[in-house]
Nucleic acid binder design. Structure first.
Lengths: 204, 204
DNA sequence: GTCTATATTCCGATAGAC
DNA sequence: GTCTATCGGAATATAGAC
């Protein structure tokens, strides 16, 4: 084994390199040459494995999109205690983002450039079952545990608080004067902060 | 006056068109031809007024960046009542975003691609005076009005809750099944929701 | 200042040898 | 399967007439 990559299949090396380049530069900014270089092969081979840049991109995008879309609806409609659902969601989601800090910007960028096409390719054509979330909330309201709130607004709040700091990572690092490791510490600490912020707001 | 644009200077027409195309497509995705078409002129004239695509982009970027960076620090250190500061910030910021929904993604994208260069071009080299915000918060804590919180985390929360829905606008529209006008209504309603959400969380 | 026409560079994609 | 060499188109940028 000469280096770390030599025991991986060529296809795996390409996918790994493509993920890195696409998530950093976006579809338009990425260069097939860069992907080839990073994978340690040449351009022609990229076209041999994946017909075109667009095809390669689509593979990467769908793979990453699945990672980005949190199972927030499933989680909020599960049978865990309500506040525990929130804590779990925040914890898991921020952990994913610490491991994949470029993910949110990558996904949102491409969804915006391709609004109608991609948004529906991620989910099926079906509507998201947001009504179930509203029922779960209303149940807690009736029990007198939380204040009334719209399911959409609550989900927006939860996702916003988790994701935005990563979208604005360079700005946050500038304002907080932190390096990468310190930024991750900050986000680790933020798990508790966000959970507390949400629960304190909901609690009656 | 034949049309709306005929009484504007050529430079103004270019800037207007460039803003529209760059904010929609980003630096890499934008085409000089598209900008020329939208401005009602030809490509050569773009280079006559601005030397290159990059130069033109920089003008647009700096102009838009100023709009995006909210005066959150100034606002939080002003002498308004504390909860009123929050309400005002949310109201003003979401209004700006309703008028410029593409602004956040545009800015964050380019800041990320150019982390070191642009972040410092926006502000001067100086550190942001976040310490003043912490003092303003601590004062309210001592008065017994709010719970203790880090200035950075609070500012992150406030900005996250306002900005993220616009970054994820296509996804939000899909989930909430809304058209543009309905989305704007949703964001208008969100002003009160976000203000309430933040204040409920901070209040003792 | 504004245009048409053209030069130049870059990049995705293909051809063909091994 | 993998490579080198090259094509062909697209996009930025320039030259030069008006």
């Amino acid at each position: 084994m000469v280096n770390k990559k030599s025991d991986k299949s060529t296809e795996e090396k390409i996918l790994e390199a493509a993920k890195a380049v696409f998530t950093e530069k976006g579809l338009d900014g990425a260069r097939m040459q860069d992907i080839a270089d990073k994978a340690g092969i040449n351009k022609a081979l990229l076209h041999y494995y994946f017909r075109s840049k667009d095809k390669l991109f689509e593979v990467i995008f769908l793979e990453q999109a699945a990672k980005f879309m949190p199972g927030i609806i499933d989680m909020l409609t599960s049978d865990m205690p309500f506040f525990q659902k929130i804590e779990k969601f925040v914890d898991v989601y921020i952990s994913v983002l610490i491991e994949n800090p470029l993910l949110p910007l990558f996904i949102l960028n491409e969804v915006n450039k391709n609004a109608q096409g991609l948004a529906k390719k991620i989910w099926g054509g079906g509507k998201p079952p947001i009504a179930g979330v509203q029922q779960a909330i209303d149940k807690e309201v009736k029990k007198g545990i939380i204040k009334p709130i719209s399911a959409l607004q609550l989900m927006l709040n939860m996702v916003s608080l988790c994701v935005f700091p990563f979208l604005a990572k360079p700005l946050v690092q500038f304002i907080s004067q932190t390096n990468n490791a310190q930024f991750n510490q900050l986000m680790e600490a933020r798990k508790k902060e966000v959970t507390k912020f949400i629960i304190d707001s909901l609690r009656k």
